[in-house]
């Protein structure tokens, strides 16, 4: 994974962009490895009741250092080596421009 790589869930509509690749190679969504191309259709797992990923939120795994930005919402969760990524709480900055 490289910064800017776009990854698509194979179990939902969700997609993310890599902000920091960290030390990991495999990011999963809903338990399945994410793909560099959209899966293009519903899969058996589409009805997953996993945590909903929210557009515009950043998700991180502290251990591997990976950080991604959700650019399209859908069912998750995101995980690395079985560890579920958490929402990065961004410090609210006053608008400067």
């Amino acid at each position: 994974m490289k910064p800017g790589t776009r990854l698509h869930s194979t179990v939902s509509e969700a997609s993310v962009v890599v902000v920091r690749p960290g030390t990991t190679d495999v990011l999963t969504c809903g338990g399945q490895p994410m793909a560099t191309e959209p899966s293009g259709g519903a899969t058996a797992a589409d009805a997953t009741d996993g945590e909903q990923l929210v557009i515009g939120k950043r998700y991180v795994d502290e251990e591997s250092g990976v950080e991604v930005l959700c650019v399209k919402g859908g069912a998750g969760p995101l995980a690395v080596a079985g560890r579920v990524l958490t929402v990065k709480s961004a410090k609210q900055l006053p608008a400067s421009d």
């Binding site: 902000v19 939120k57 961004a90 609210q92 900055l93």
Partner: peptide, 15 residues
Amino acid sequence: RHLSSYIVATVEFLG
């Protein structure tokens, strides 16, 4: 990458 990093890091999406 410079401009998009700046925006993503400082602006809350649809905030």
